[in-house]
């Protein structure tokens, strides 16, 4: 049996009185790419943000139920510790505008006050940028500001920044929705590579993307986890009529 890294038990999330994630039970196997798809407002991003405890930063946002990382409830851990273990890439590229490309990659160490030798930093920077498929494009301009890069490069820089911390899980919240098709393709290609070392959970709006990049797919509708299965199975032979309606485009 595959090793499960993230598992939830009757997980619920709220914005004030608004119940946005309802009784979700899901287990996510290690070194898999899991796509979370569903129409707008179905709670998929909220669910993702609950995994690394970013949800609770919004005023009035609460949640209940179990959210386990390696069988330990993340809501019993310190949020800072959780976020070191679970990295996140956002919808819009958000490199730190005051830092160079180099410093952006090691921002997690540098800004947390972790001191390292230069050689060690160089190694992390080269390693992370290579794994984010950005090294060749930026190796001669490491000390330029990260915001000089194109949107797609900025997003890969943000991925490099997240994986530089060696997280166990990487959450991606519609990472290509602000990118053009070519940048999207390069980020998607990257996800295949990253799966060797990390477990990826990617929220996407886009069914084709879910079908292309993921091993397993979860379909959320109105806050419920309707169906969760092998991606191939889900797209060829969905069990629930709501899933079927969604992937055949009857509603979106």
């Amino acid at each position: 049996m595959e090793h499960t890294i993230v598992r939830t038990e009757k997980f619920n999330a709220y914005f004030g009185a608004n119940h946005v994630v309802k009784d979700v039970n899901i287990s996510i196997p290690k070194n898999n790419v899991v796509a979370v798809m569903g129409p707008s407002g179905c709670g998929k991003t909220t669910f993702l943000r609950c995994i690394n405890r970013m949800h609770e930063l919004i005023a009035g946002a609460t949640c209940e139920g179990e959210m386990l990382l390696n069988n330990e409830d993340v809501y019993d851990m310190h949020p800072i510790f959780v976020r070191l273990k679970i990295g996140m890439v956002f919808q819009r590229p958000n490199p730190f505008p005051n830092l160079s490309i180099y410093d952006n990659v090691i921002a997690g160490y540098k800004l947390n006050g972790i001191k390292m030798a230069k050689a060690e930093k160089d190694k992390i920077v080269e390693n992370s940028l290579s794994r984010a498929a950005l090294w060749n494009e930026v190796k001669d301009s490491l000390h330029k500001k990260g915001t000089f890069l194109s949107g797609g490069q900025q997003q890969r820089l943000c991925i490099a920044r997240a994986i530089a911390m060696e997280p166990e899980v990487l959450l991606l919240d519609e990472p290509t929705s602000a990118l053009d098709p070519i940048s999207t393709a390069s980020v998607e290609e990257l996800l295949f590579e990253l799966k060797k070392n990390y477990t990826l959970i990617i929220v996407t709006h886009n069914m084709q993307q879910a079908a292309r990049v993921s091993d397993r797919t979860a379909f959320f509708y109105l806050g419920e986890l309707v169906e969760y299965d092998d991606t191939k199975q889900m797209f060829t032979n969905p069990k629930d009529t709501r899933t079927q309606n969604y992937i055949t485009g009857r509603f979106s």
Partner: peptide, 27 residues
């Protein structure tokens, strides 16, 4: 300053005071 900047810092496991001092103030 956009909220995404704060989120980027917090998602890297930065404590609140470091986010303010190292990200928000310099920007």
């Amino acid at each position: 300053l956009p909220d995404t900047l704060k989120e980027a810092a917090l998602a890297l496991g930065m404590p609140y005071h470091r986010m303010i001092l190292k990200v928000i103030l310099p920007c």
